[in-house]
Amino acid sequence: MSSRRGLSLVLAGSLGLTMALTACGGGTTRESQAQQPAAPAPSSSAAASADPSAEIPEGLKIAFLPKQLNNPYSDIEAAGGKEAVEELGGEYSLVGPNDASASSQVSYINTLIQQQQDVINIAANDPNAVCPSLNQARAKGIPVVTFDSDANPDCRDVFINQATTEGIGKTLAEQALELSGGSGKVAVLSATANATNQNAWIEVMKEELAKPEYAGVELVEVAYGDDDDQKSFQQTQALLQKYPDLKAIVSPTTVGIAAAARYISSSDYKGKVAVTGLGTPNQMREYVKDGTVKEFALWSPADIGYLAGYAGAALKAGQITGAEGETFEAGRLGEYTIGADGEVVLGPPTTFDASNIDQFDF
């Protein structure tokens, strides 16, 4: 089967979801960490050679632990995971905190170990805080798949990445350049200060902005809305008060981009300050229609969860160990190949604007 089939354009039918979103926690990749996690404890899948022909057993208990519950973005990811688990004939469970703090997931990991889950899929709130518990799970033969936001590679088996860190960071820089008109002050409205994916994307964005072709663009501040709608709204207001000549706000989190667009759409800054970043079509449609937002980007959140579900089952069955070059089938998404450091890339993000946004429903 073709890899990455149908990933860059995700229509309503492929998602099977019709959700109007008002907020969401964006998240994806690894960053370099100053702290070192506990020593790795390889899972049973990593201790043996892969057997691509191994059968996935019925009734696997596959748990999903997103950054936080009741977050529309995370809910879509989890729904994709549930779809995969049901296709595989497994038992799906969803647990998680109501906040996205660094250590809030640890107790849930410990509970999943006690429940003897067969697979743990987690979008890590912090790359290192979850590592000791994840390695305890792996030591008991429970494979760990990170999705959307990675943990340190030493404490998981496979990471499902939405797109490459470089690709997303460059996209954010390009949006800043285009929407600022090639010069002027721009600001970033991020999620939490410790969000693995946000920090990695922003670092690449900074590297891009340091290049000669971006010489006219000045990144004046990275603000944090903590993936909270009201705080992100207030941070937008604070940025505009501090930098009244701001040209653009780039928000690589769906909570932040929606809050920023909502503030600017009803202010005197509409038409003067551009808003872009990562959002969902249903969430951002009204702001595209009213001219507040010209363009933004995202991938399919449901497909991230779906791919994680299949990767976890393949690990538990022994079809893969997480080694570079191994391949596995992921249902309707086709075949995937594991890259360096156990990373699997879903596919390129899609740019949404007035010309195509009505083609999407998620």
Rank of each mutant, 00 (worst) to 15 (best):
S2P: 12
S3Q: 07
L7R: 11
S8C: 09
V10R: 04
S14P: 11
M19N: 15
A20C: 13
A20P: 14
T28E: 15
Q33T: 15
P37Q: 03
A38R: 07
A39R: 15
A39P: 08
A46K: 08
A47V: 01
S49V: 05
S49C: 12
D51E: 09
P52R: 13
G59F: 05
K61A: 13
K61L: 07
A63L: 15
N70R: 15
N71L: 07
P72R: 00
P72I: 00
I76A: 14
A78E: 04
A78K: 05
A79W: 10
G80M: 08
K82P: 02
E83C: 11
G89S: 03
P97H: 14
D99N: 11
A100E: 12
S101Y: 12
N110L: 12
D118S: 08
V119M: 10
I120A: 01
I122P: 02
A129T: 05
V130K: 01
L134C: 05
N135D: 10
A137M: 01
R138M: 07
G141D: 03
P143G: 04
F147R: 02
F147N: 03
D148T: 00
C155P: 10
R156A: 12
V158P: 08
A163L: 03
K170C: 13
T171F: 14
A173Q: 10
A176M: 15
E178S: 07
S183G: 01
S183L: 06
V186E: 08
S190G: 12
A191T: 12
T192K: 02
N194M: 09
N197I: 00
N199E: 03
E203A: 15
A210D: 15
P212C: 15
E213Q: 15
E213I: 09
Y214V: 09
G216W: 14
L219G: 00
E221M: 11
Y224A: 15
D227P: 00
D229F: 15
K231F: 10
K231L: 15
T236F: 07
A238Y: 14
Q241F: 02
D245C: 03
D245M: 05
I249T: 02
P252H: 06
V255M: 15
V255T: 14
A259E: 00
S265W: 04
S266K: 04
S267M: 08
S267D: 13
T276Q: 08
G279C: 01
Q283H: 11
M284V: 01
R285T: 03
Y287V: 07
V288A: 06
W299G: 00
S300E: 09
P301S: 00
I304S: 10
G309A: 11
A311T: 06
A314N: 11
A314D: 01
A323K: 14
E324T: 09
G325Y: 10
F328A: 04
F328S: 06
A330G: 03
Y336M: 05
G342L: 12
V345D: 11
P348Y: 09
P349F: 05
T350A: 14
D361I: 13
D361L: 09
